[in-house]
């Protein structure tokens, strides 16, 4: 698969030219994050180099607190690197050269808006949609939101408020909000963490279908190795705090993948080896 073309062993010098950067969606070059100063300083992320090509689906796995979410925050420019650089779409992360969609672990839907208005929110903020928002919010944008909600089985809940929905429904709506503005870069921070296995598998399939439709670049943070293996085209394993990437491997299984895949022996073997790797570094 194309993903294996961008392993983390590419020398930094080669990537520093503008041309090379533009070819990639995300580029972390020895980026690190340190909170606080002096003796009380906490290193959330050790210098990390990670390059992600356009259209890749990268899963970041590793023990809790290893800095997985920190990488997402760097890429979405919620955080600035203490050192090193974070380049997104060939520009510095804060420039927002790429359209970003993000879904967090908690479905952070705004409680005062209906599901429809929540999902519509990115269209109100993100260019070029924002220019047409006033005109289209009751027409084209509304249809668009309803069509996407229908894709994940929420068509009858557009007028409901977040607290009226179950956890699984909220995560579906959350995913819709991350996708409504057709992002080039989708950042997912354990979006299925709090769900039961069946709902999770359903949502994996939904996400895979949505991914294959437009092929945005995806960076998925997860604890779940089966989730990573089923969805991703490349898996990066991180060490405990201060985190850094210790393993980077492509998953060369053809897509779309059938959900039964996760119970096949070779798949189980692959997740087992990842599991052992993480178990080792946790010690």
């Amino acid at each position: 698969m194309q993903m294996s073309a961008a392993p983390s062993t590419v020398p930094p010098a080669q990537a520093s030219t503008a041309q090379a950067s533009a070819a990639r969606a995300v580029e972390l070059d020895r980026a690190s994050v340190v909170f606080g100063r002096g003796a009380g300083a906490v290193t959330a992320l050790a210098p990390t180099t990670l390059r992600i090509g356009h259209g890749a689906f990268v899963a970041l796995v590793g023990p809790s607190g290893c800095g997985k979410s920190t990488i997402l925050k760097l890429v979405s420019s919620l955080l600035r690197p203490s050192d090193g650089s974070v380049v997104v779409g060939g520009r510095e992360a804060s420039v927002r050269a790429l359209r970003i969609g993000m879904a967090f672990q908690n479905p952070t839907l705004l409680p005062w808006l209906t599901i429809e208005r929540n999902v519509m929110l990115p269209l109100k903020i993100v260019p070029p949609f924002r220019h047409d928002f006033r005109r289209e919010r009751t027409r084209a944008f509304r249809d668009r939101v309803h069509a996407l909600l229908a894709r994940v089985g929420l068509q009858d809940f557009a007028g409901h408020y977040p607290w009226q929905l179950s956890g699984g429904m909220l995560q579906r709506a959350n995913l819709c909000r991350a996708l409504i503005h057709e992002p080039d870069l989708l950042l997912l921070d354990e979006p299925f963490g709090a769900l039961d296995q069946f709902t999770r598998e359903e949502l994996w399939q939904d996400l895979q279908a949505l991914y294959l439709e437009r092929r945005p670049t995806v960076l998925l943070v997860t604890h779940d190795l089966r989730e990573a293996g089923y969805l991703a085209t490349r898996i990066c394993v991180m060490s405990p705090r201060p985190g850094r990437i210790i393993s980077d491997r492509p998953i060369d299984l053809p897509q779309p993948r059938d959900i039964d895949l996760i119970y096949r022996p070779d798949f189980v073997e692959m997740t087992q080896s990842l599991r052992e790797l993480i178990a080792q570094v946790r010690k």
Partner: peptide, 27 residues
Amino acid sequence: TEPELEDVLKTLGASRSEILWNVGLPR
């Protein structure tokens, strides 16, 4: 206001005043 709610808008590239209008004031 929960920082998570503000983060939703920040990742979309919203300005401070947009965050105030869409999250802070309704909240």
